[in-house]
Structure formats: structure tokens, C-alpha cells
Simulated assay, not measured.
Amino acid sequence: MHAPASAAWLLVALCAASGAYCLLRMRSAVEEQRRAAGAEALMGFGMAAMAVPAAFVTPPRAMWLVCAVVFAAAGLRSVAGVGPRGARGPRGDAHQLHHLVGAVAMVYMSVVMAASPGGHAGHGTSGTPLLTGALLLYFAAYVLRSGTRLIPATATRLGHGQGQGYGHEYGGGTGTAALGWGDRPELARACRLSMGIAMFAMLLTL
């Protein structure tokens, strides 16, 4: 992306750290947790690659086309997981739909970067304003909603000593006290919030 180097490297670090934590979450004993974490790890590392400053490296355009194909496949997988066949319930379907929107945003940014001079967006002529605006509105709303949910959820679990952990999100009954670092729901929400903020910042450069 085309952004000040210091801000770009902060985005790289944030997205890479989020992706690394999602890899840790993939070791969870909860199947739905592993599936969600895999999609989010792909998103985190993909965003980290996109955020690398243009002055540092200029990837070939073919790389962005490959990224578009990869995230298009990830989006189709998210679509397949929504509805009766997924049997995840409203909360699980909401996660899949969010992954779908994220995949659409990644495909969009990949195509824009492949079509932009030098393979980097942000030169004033790239992107479709209507689609960019719609994605910006979505991720702004997602960040605000995630932020308001994160603090009360953390406070409630700390106040009661034992919460429902991912049992609340996926229907199981695991207690918070027994959860490892990869299964902490508040950390997973913080990770998603971080990636939502990073996605919003990256879309602003289009």
C-alpha cells in the first residue's frame, strides 16, 4: 500500500502479530475455533504482505493476482459454511459472513494493486469509490461494534471468575479458567478488532 513508511510498518507488525496469534488458536480443541482461526491467520498474513512499504519492496503484479485467487477461494469457502449445511447457528454464520466480506476486501485490494503503477495502490486513481466507501463503512461499523463488545465481555468474565469461554460463542461448555492463550475469547476478539482497524486503514489508501 502507499502510506508513510512508519505507519506502514506498524500495520505490518500489527497484522503479522494477529496472524501469528491466529496460528496459535489453530491448536484449539474446539473445531469451530480452529476453522475461524485458520481463515483469520490467512487474512492477517495477507494484510501484512500488502502493508509492506512500496519503498522497501515492489512485488510483481502476478503475486497480487495470485493473492486475489487465494482470497477468492477463501471467500467461497466462507459462503459454503453459511446456512443449514454449516449448522453453526446465527453467531457462527455471522463469523463466516464477516470472513466473506474480509475476503472480498482482500480480492479487491489485490486487483487494485495489480492494476496500479508499480504494483501499489494509493496514487489517486486506483480503486472504485463506491466499493471502497461501502467496505470502509462496513469495517468502521465492525470496529465500533467489536470495541464495545470487547470491554464488557472481558469485565464480566473477570468479575465472575468463570465464564463460558468459547462455549458462549460456539455452544460448548469450556470454562474460562481452563482455557489456554489460544482459546481466550477476549484475546480472539482483540485480534479481530486489530485486523478490522488495519483493514480500515488500508482501504483508506485506495
Rank of each mutant, 00 (worst) to 15 (best):
M106E: 03
M106W: 04
M106F: 06
V107H: 07
V107Y: 08
V107D: 01
V107I: 03
Y108A: 01
Y108F: 09
Y108P: 01
M109R: 00
M109H: 04
M109G: 04
S110P: 05
S110K: 00
S110G: 00
V111Y: 01
V111F: 00
V111H: 00
V112E: 09
V112W: 04
V112A: 04
M113V: 02
M113A: 15
M113N: 01
M113G: 02
A114P: 00
A114K: 01
A114I: 02
A114H: 00
A115F: 05
A115Q: 11
A115H: 08
S116H: 03
S116D: 12
P117M: 10
P117C: 12
P117S: 13
G118M: 03
G118R: 02
G118F: 03
G118H: 06
G118T: 08
G119L: 04
H120C: 02
H120G: 00
A121N: 06
A121V: 10
G122C: 11
G122H: 03
H123K: 08
H123E: 13
G124E: 12
G124Y: 07
T125L: 14
T125R: 09
T125H: 07
S126G: 15
S126V: 06
G127Y: 02
G127R: 02
T128V: 11
T128L: 12
T128K: 07
T128C: 11
T128Y: 11
P129C: 10
P129F: 04
P129W: 13
L130T: 09
L130W: 06
L130P: 04
L131E: 03
T132M: 13
T132D: 14
G133P: 05
G133I: 10
G133N: 15
A134R: 05
A134C: 14
A134L: 15
A134T: 09
L135C: 04
L135A: 07
L135K: 00
L135P: 00
L135Q: 02
L136V: 09
L136A: 12
L137Q: 07
L137V: 14
L137D: 09
L137E: 08
Y138G: 09
Y138L: 13
Y138C: 10
Y138A: 14
F139S: 05
F139D: 11
F139I: 12
A140F: 14
A140V: 13
A140S: 14
A140G: 15
A140N: 09
A141L: 15
A141C: 15
A141E: 12
Y142M: 13
Y142D: 14
